[in-house]
Amino acid sequence: MNIFRLFGDLSHLAAIAILLLKIWKTRSCAGVSGKTQLLFAVCFITRYIDLFLHFVSLYNTEKVMKLIYISASVFTCYLIFFKFKATYDGNHDSMRAEFLIVPAAGLACLINTKFDAIEILWTFSIYLEAVAILPQLFLISKTGEAETITSHYLFAQGSYRALYILNWIYRYHYESHVDTIAIVAGVVQTILYCDFFYLYITKVVKGQKIVLPA
């Protein structure tokens, strides 16, 4: 474990907590893409399948973190699609999730470390996570704005994988550890946040709200 991965995981936890708080406190999921949250839930379940196969986890905190990620993302989907369904902005959350899931699944079967079920599921989860934020970014571009709390959620969510890139550089240098699939997908994922990061740093930090040219 290194500082980059630690802060990456903390940033990821913060993102999940910020989103849950926003929905729970405002009792509304306006401005939140339910599809992105569904895709994240699928990512966690397919990636942490070892929890269900009784793989010996490396250390307890990791098992706890995996359980938190899975339960929090499923609970977030429950809030969006059931509890606060009336506030779900289905019209603007219109990016076809199939266009993300099918290519990720296909690519996972073509480019993977080992052609076995659990490895392909993990690879699918990595590829899907790289593009899972697209429906959320698409929704913001359709509504033309993002609530400040949602911007903080996106900043934390984007920072998590950006910090993981630093973690991979660190591990390459000190542990000669390289996982090309995770690195390439992580770089693509972080690049997708670039224009949002620019807007966040130039606007939200100054107290303004993000309003996209509609």
Binding site: D9, H12, D50, F55, E62, T113, K114, W122, Y164, S176
Partner: peptide, 10 residues
């Protein structure tokens, strides 16, 4: 990187 060592990152 030990191949097959189940992924040690989240």
């Amino acid at each position: 990187y030990k191949d097959g060592a189940w992924k040690d990152e989240l």
